[in-house]
Amino acid sequence: MPAMIDIADANKTFTMHLQGGIELPVVRGVTFQVQLSECVVLSGPSGAGKSSILKMIFGNYRCDSGRIGIRHRGALIDLATAEPRQVLNVRRATIGYVSQFLRAVPRVATIDVVAEPLIAGGIGRADAQARAGELLHRLNIPQRLWQLPPATFSGGEQQRVNIARGFISDLPILLLDEPTASLDAANRAIVVELVAEKKRQGVAMVAIVHDDEIRHLIADRIVDVTSFAAAA
């Protein structure tokens, strides 16, 4: 079975034009694969480039060179050279991204924030909201909050809304940036369960997790990002 993610020799440098054009190397020679049903955890100290690699896989950061191969609808597509429209299609149908912080539109109710990816994928509003409700319930967001916009929620609540939004779709690839950072033990355990369910469904995942215990519970393989350190 071909890999779901196949990254080969990807490089990224920031050029800071406002700071006299200094070059800030981020990562060099990033090479690894992720298979179906596999969760790869990126490890390394802060600043090693873990989040940057996730953003490169999502097509949010552009690569200077190398390949970001993504299996999209049965074919391999290189996000490093793809057209914007193709990147958007890959995000709609293939790659989900659970960022560290929730970036929601003001005024939109929590239940709709969570249901939105399903609605965008063509599922009816009622069904989408029902599934959103199930996930919110599982993640211990009380029903009385569902109709409120999440902007006023606590950090942990916002992160759980974000997780619900990220896990609701049936996308074959999921990228997780510190999904458990501000959660208590009970909610961390639920996220571990959700990851295990995704694996059983064949989803390929790349995660950043600082908590050793959680990493141990979800990782099938660890990729050490310091080996891609650009400054070395």
């Binding site: 050029t15 034009h17 406002l18 953003k55 949010n60 950061y61 552009r62």
Partner: peptide, 21 residues
Amino acid sequence: TGLTDQVLDDPREPYTQLLVS
């Protein structure tokens, strides 16, 4: 030119970096 989040999160041109910053 590019995908909106690419250009805003990873701007390349000096002028775009100035706008974003």
